[in-house]
Design a protein around this nucleic acid. Structure first.
Lengths: 174, 174
DNA sequence: CAATTGGCTATGAAAGTCATACGCTCCTAC
DNA sequence: GTAGGAGCGTATGACTTTCATAGCCAATTG
C-alpha cells in the first residue's frame, strides 16, 4: 500500500488514508488530546496517556517529524523540552471533538456524566453533544468553544498524576 | 491501563480513550470509511483498504463484537455475508469527516483537488472544507450533507478494484 | 469436470510493543 | 561533597501483532 517512513500513505487521493497514516493510532491520538488539554511535559504526557516511556518518546519523535508538534527547550543542560502543538496539530481538534462526541454517545455506561463540558464562547451557553448552541440555535465552530473538565474528571486526572509519581518513585512496591 | 478484550478502556471517564479503544487504529477507520461509502463485501473492503485478508477478517470480527457493524447472510451455503454499519457505526461519520477535513487541509500536496465534494442537501450549494454552507452562512450538520466523489477519485478506486482482482487471479505474476 | 471466484484460515517470518532496568544531568539536603 | 531524588529519556529481551504467502472449501462457470 505504499506507506512512507513518516507513516503517510501518499499513494491515494483519499484524505482519510493520509490522516490515519499520521494519527491513526491510539497513542498519537491520546498524546494530541493531552497537548490540546494543555500538558507539555514528558512525564505528564506519560502519566495521562499511560504510554510507556519509549512508546511516548517514539511517538513524540514521529509527531515532530510530521510537523504536528515542536519541542522547545526549557533547559539547556540537561536538555529538557516542552512539547507544543503546531497549527497543524491544533487543527486536529475537530477530530478529537468528534471522537469525544461519539465516545460520550455510544461508549459510556448509561447515565455517566460527561468528562468535559463545552460552552459557546460568544454567549456562554453550554453546547449539546453535537456541538450545537441551544441559545443561538446553530452549530458552533470549534474555535468558538470553551472546554471545562468536570470535577470528577479533574479528580481522575489528578489521581493518575499522583499514582504515576508514586510508582516511579518507589519502583518495587506492590 | 486496563484495556478489556474488546479494546475498550473502561477505566476512565475520558470518552476519547473509549473511542480510540474501539476505532483507534488505521484499519478500523479505513473499514468504516468504506462501509460509509457503501461497500459491503469482503473483497471490496480488502481492495479499497489494502488490508490483508486476515487483518480484515479480524477487524470485522471485532467491529461486529463492538456493535459497530452487523453481518447479513446473502448466501447460506457457503456462508457469505454483507457487512453493514449499525447506527453506532454510522455515527462515526463525524469522525471520518473530521479526518477528511484535516487530511485535505494539512496532508496533501498543494493544489491537489479534493477527493470527495460535499453538498448541502437543503440548498445544493457546495460546502467548504470546514463544513460551512456559503449560501446559508452556517455550519451544516453531517446528516444534511451529500457526498460526491470526484472523477479522479472514482477512477483511483476503480483501478484499485481492478488491480486487486487481477492480483488475486494471477498470483505469481510480477 | 477442470478452472475460477469469494471468503476466509494457516503458517512462519518480520515488525511492533511491553515491562523492566539503567544512564545521564542537575538540584537539594544533609 | 556526596546521597539521593527528579526529569527525560535509551537499552534489552520477552511477548504479541502484523505481514506475505499459501491453501481450503463450496458454488459457479465453461
Amino acid at each position: 500500500m505504499a506507506i512512507s517512513k513518516d507513516g503517510d500513505d501518499d499513494d491515494t487521493l483519499c484524505p482519510i488514508a493520509h490522516s490515519t497514516g499520521l494519527v491513526g493510532d491510539r497513542w498519537s491520538i491520546l498524546i494530541v488530546r493531552e497537548l490540546l488539554m494543555g500538558q507539555t511535559r514528558f512525564q505528564d504526557l506519560q502519566a495521562q496517556t499511560g504510554a510507556t516511556s519509549q512508546m511516548l518518546a517514539a511517538r513524540l519523535k514521529r509527531l515532530e517529524a510530521d510537523g504536528i508538534l515542536t519541542r522547545h527547550a526549557y533547559s539547556q543542560r540537561p536538555p529538557r523540552h516542552e512539547y507544543r502543538l503546531t497549527p497543524k496539530g491544533v487543527n486536529l481538534m475537530p477530530v478529537i471533538l468528534a471522537l469525544r462526541t461519539w465516545g460520550e454517545a455510544w461508549c459510556k455506561p448509561a447515565g455517566e456524566e460527561v468528562a468535559v463540558r463545552m460552552f459557546h464562547r460568544a454567549c456562554g451557553a453550554e453546547l449539546d453533544l453535537g456541538g450545537a448552541c441551544p441559545a443561538c440555535e446553530r452549530l458552533v465552530a470549534w474555535t468558538d468553544m470553551q472546554a471545562q473538565p468536570t470535577a470528577s474528571y479533574r479528580a481522575e486526572r489528578a489521581r493518575r498524576a499522583a499514582d504515576f509519581r508514586r510508582a516511579s518513585t518507589h519502583p518495587q512496591t506492590e
